[in-house]
């Protein structure tokens, strides 16, 4: 286990790099996914098409392929940047599809009678959306959305294999590969580092779920 303490700085930096990647990707995918969900429930057919095709494309394509496409495809068309940003782009594009589905199913889970009642008492579209539909939808959306985000955190490990240096997976690769350290302690450390992120996140999600749960 000494290897973990000897390389503690490496682990710590990797831990925070992973958190940083996740934070960017989370914000991006929540924003993009919500917009896409708006597209999917909108009355305008072309917008619905965009939303539906996005979901079908990215949900059925491995993240690895999306990452490769961003990392090697984008430079080909003259878009250059750091692998760091390419990988965040890929994570956002991919995760947004799942966020979209979670949000959409939340909106659809609100009983139609709620919106009909809102319209019947004369609320406008905006009013009924913000005061009736969304407050109820958000509660239903929390559990699946949380699972999507936790899965995204785990997926972020894949970007380490794409030359985004310094995050947790890359640390494990460096230590067991070029530095030739024994794999078991190194990887145990990496596993613990991931559990330090995912287990509290899962516990927080469970707490949040109970807090916003509604009897319907």
């Amino acid at each position: 286990m000494n290897v973990i303490f000897e390389n503690f700085a490496l682990y710590r930096d990797g831990f925070f790099k992973t958190l940083l990647i996740c934070a960017y990707a989370m914000v991006g995918s929540l924003v993009l996914g919500t917009i896409l969900a708006g597209f999917r429930v909108s009355p305008v057919p072309p917008l619905r098409w965009i939303g539906t095709s996005w979901v079908n494309v990215f949900r059925n394509c491995p993240l690895t392929v999306v990452l490769f496409f961003c990392a090697f495809g984008l430079p080909e068309v003259g878009i250059n940047g750091a692998y760091f940003w390419f990988s965040i782009t890929a994570l956002v594009l991919y995760t947004a599809a799942f966020v979209c589905e979670a949000v959409r199913s939340g909106i659809n889970s609100v009983p139609a009678g709620q919106a009909e009642a809102a319209r019947a008492v004369g609320l406008t579209f905006g009013q009924s959306l913000t005061t009736i539909i969304l407050p109820q939808a958000i509660r239903t959306v929390v559990p699946p959305l949380g699972s999507v985000i936790i899965a995204m955190i785990k997926n972020s490990a894949i970007v380490g294999a794409f030359g985004v240096g310094g995050e947790l997976f890359a640390v494990s690769d460096t230590l067991t590969g070029s530095r030739g350290e024994a794999a078991l302690p190194v990887l145990t450390g990496i596993v613990i580092a991931y559990l330090l992120i995912t287990l509290p996140a899962g516990a927080f999600l469970g707490w949040l779920e109970r807090k916003v749960a509604i009897a319907r």
Binding site: I153, K154, N155, S156, A157, I158, G160, A161, F169, S172, D173, T176, A182, A183, L184, L187, I190, V191, Y194, L195, T198, L199, G202
Partner: peptide
């Protein structure tokens, strides 16, 4: 179950590939 669900699948694969040969 909780433990394994918290680990990225990439790490699980990498773990197996690097640790078993040891």
């Amino acid at each position: 179950i909780e433990l394994l669900r918290g680990i990225p699948v990439v790490i699980a694969i990498f773990f197996v590939a690097r640790v078993l040969p040891e």
